[in-house]
Design a binder for these strands. Structure first.
Length: 423
DNA sequence: TCTGGGGTCCTAGGACCC
DNA sequence: TCTGGGGTCCTAGGACCC
């Protein structure tokens, strides 16, 4: 057997990604406290370092930090996902150029298998990643390199705290033990608040204690996930690189309303709009759905939000917008209760299969294929003339339930009309 | 008063079968 | 009235991620 040596995994993580994207096209935001808000301008989803220093927590509802925002003149923006997705793909293509097996993990993070790089060159490689991305895209990143994804995540978070070049390569086992000894379990990738609590009940508080705990105890007391994390901490890679993303199993489009909604007609408009959007995702990925599910979320009472949902198995798998819209509306009529205020609704498409090898039914419906074609034509009109150039009537016209995005920056790179202008 | 959106995986328990 | 053991599949809910 050929001995290939230990694997080495790099994590490249964009710093304060959404804020960094905004700063690319609005340099006046540089060195100011800046935050980006989630949909409906509700929660903080990205913070500049200056905003972090002010003590603005990740995920904080906007109203809870309004005082700080006002007194420190924090700049706030609605999220502009079209822009972030575009910048993300640029960062990814720079990384792909390096030629290592690459897995995009999220919009702002990627793993790379850098085992092929000689150990002594890893430090220089990590600096190359960082500098080339900065130079070619303008986005600041931090880089962590270690023997597993979980360790690379820790290395990345250490890199991020550095003032100079933000890279960290785990090489020396003694140093690593020391680092794991001061890393609380709750900081680990894959360990949330609940698991951390259960671990601490077993006397396991640090990453070092988790790594050295008995596997059988971990498995029975917490679960397979904890055991896997412990192995990863020991340098054993048990989370395979996924260069080709596995086929998705569901498609979901859901939104909170700008205000509580209690009229069925308005919810029907929203669900039509979400169904249309979800079906467009299917077509983009060449998929069909055989099941549709809708859900409605009621307003919170004493912190608890009741929800109702219903699903329906379609007679034939499809990505036809009109058909999915009418299915969603039928479901709505069955679960809608008058007199209740709803704050959010959503459509989930399930039982997905490839459109290429579709399974026809004995009495296949020709009109189904026709409406699928119409949907494709509408996609291309939207592609050419913009997202709002054409809609289904059932989506409504006023759309005054639609979420707030009052502070959104222009699309910049996604639309010819909003390209920045030089003067 | 006001708390995002889109995913995946794991587990326990119930239904069902022979 | 007495009522096994072992297996699969499905589903809902929980937990996690960014």
């Amino acid at each position: 057997m050929l001995f290939t040596g230990l694997e080495m995994i790099a994590l490249v993580d964009c710093n304060n990604f959404y804020v960094s994207c905004e700063r690319l096209f609005n340099p006046r935001l540089e060195s100011l406290p800046v935050i980006v808000l989630s949909n409906n301008d509700s929660c903080v989803v990205s913070r500049s370092n200056e905003a972090k220093t002010l003590g603005i927590p990740m995920g904080a509802p906007f109203f809870s930090i309004e005082k700080i925002v006002r007194s420190a003149e924090v700049k706030f923006l609605s999220s502009n996902y079209a822009l972030y997705a575009d910048i993300s793909s640029r960062v990814l293509s720079v990384l792909a150029d390096f030629g290592f097996p690459l897995e995009q993990y999220s919009i702002d993070e990627a793993f790379m298998d850098v085992s092929a790089c000689p150990r002594k060159n890893l430090q220089a490689l990590s600096v190359d990643f960082l500098q080339r991305i900065r130079q070619w895209t303008g986005i600041p990143v931090s880089v962590g390199i270690a023997e597993s994804k979980t360790l690379a995540k820790i290395a990345g978070s250490i890199a991020k705290k550095k003032n100079t070049i933000q890279t960290e390569v785990f090489e020396d086992p003694i140093v690593l033990d020391e680092i794991l000894g001061r890393t609380p379990c709750s900081d680990l990738w894959g360990v949330g608040a609940r698991f951390a609590k259960r671990l601490s009940a077993k006397g396991i508080c640090t990453a070092l204690e988790l790594r050295d705990a008995a596997p059988s105890v971990l498995r029975s007391a917490i679960g397979v996930q904890a055991q896997r994390t412990a192995m990863e901490l020991a340098g054993e890679n048990c989370m395979a690189m996924e260069e080709i993303p596995p086929p998705r199993k569901s498609v979901c489009v859901s939104r909170s309303f700008s205000r509580p909604v209690s009229e069925m007609e308005e919810i029907a408009e929203a669900l039509s709009s979400y169904s249309s959007g979800a079906s467009a995702k299917l077509r983009k990925d060449g998929l069909l759905a055989a099941e549709i599910s809708i859900f409605l979320l009621e307003r919170r009472i004493n912190g608890i939000a009741a929800s109702r949902s219903l699903s329906y198995s379609l007679p034939e798998a499809t990505n036809s917008a009109p058909l999915l819209i009418s299915a969603a509306k039928n479901l709505l009529e069955k679960i809608f209760v008058p007199g209740i205020s709803y704050v959010k609704a959503g459509v989930i498409l399930l039982e997905l299969s490839s459109a290429k090898n579709r399974q026809g039914t004995l009495f296949g419906d020709e009109s189904l294929q026709k409406t699928e074609k119409v949907s494709c034509i509408i996609d291309s009109i939207r592609e050419k003339y913009g997202k709002y150039s054409i809609s289904y009537a059932s989506e409504g016209f006023g759309k005054n339930w639609e979420m707030r995005r009052n502070f959104r920056s222009p699309s910049y790179t996604g639309d010819w009309n909003s390209l920045p202008v030089c003067r």
